[in-house]
Amino acid sequence: MDDVSLGLMLDLVGTFVFGLSGATLAVRRDFDIFGILVLAIAAALAGGVIRDVFLGATPPAAFSDTRYIAAAALAAGAAFVGYRVIERLAKPVMLLDALGLGLFAVSGCRKALEAGLDPLPAVILGVVTAVGGGALRDMLVAEPPRVLREEVYALAALIGAVIVVAGDMMALPPGWAAAIGVVMTAGFRIVSVWRGWNAPRAPGSGKPR
Rank of each mutant, 00 (worst) to 15 (best):
A44S: 14
L37C: 01
I50N: 10
I50P: 08
D52Y: 02
A71H: 05
I41R: 01
A44W: 03
G77D: 08
A75R: 00
L55S: 11
R67P: 00
F34V: 14
G47D: 02
F63E: 12
A57I: 12
G48F: 05
A73Q: 02
A44Y: 02
A44M: 06
I36N: 07
R29E: 13
A43I: 04
V38N: 06
A75H: 06
F54P: 04
P59M: 14
A72W: 09
R51E: 09
R67N: 03
G77N: 10
D65P: 00
F63I: 15
V53S: 11
I41T: 06
L39Q: 04
T66W: 00
A75T: 00
I69K: 11
T58F: 04
L45H: 08
A73D: 03
D65M: 00
A72N: 02
D32Q: 09
L39R: 08
F31M: 10
I36K: 03
A76T: 10
F31I: 07
G35M: 09
P60N: 05
I50W: 02
G47M: 05
F34K: 10
D65G: 02
T58G: 12
P60M: 05
R67E: 08
P59Y: 14
F54V: 12
R67L: 00
D32S: 08
D65H: 07
I50V: 15
L45P: 05
G35K: 11
S64R: 15
V38S: 03
D52S: 06
A71K: 01
L37W: 04
P59D: 12
A72C: 07
V49N: 12
A46G: 14
G56M: 15
F63C: 13
D32H: 10
A40E: 00
R67S: 04
A61C: 03
L37S: 01
A42W: 01
V53T: 13
A57F: 08
A70T: 14
G35A: 07
A75D: 00
A70S: 15
G56K: 15
D52C: 05
A62G: 12
A70K: 03
A72Y: 07
R29Y: 08
P59I: 13
G47L: 06
A42I: 00
G48P: 10
G77Y: 06
T58K: 12
G48R: 02
Y68P: 12
I50K: 07
A57H: 10
G48A: 05
G77H: 11
A44D: 05
L55R: 10
D32C: 06
L55F: 13
I36E: 11
I41K: 01
L74K: 07
P60K: 10
L37H: 07
A71N: 06
G56H: 15
V53F: 11
R29V: 09
D52M: 02
A43C: 13
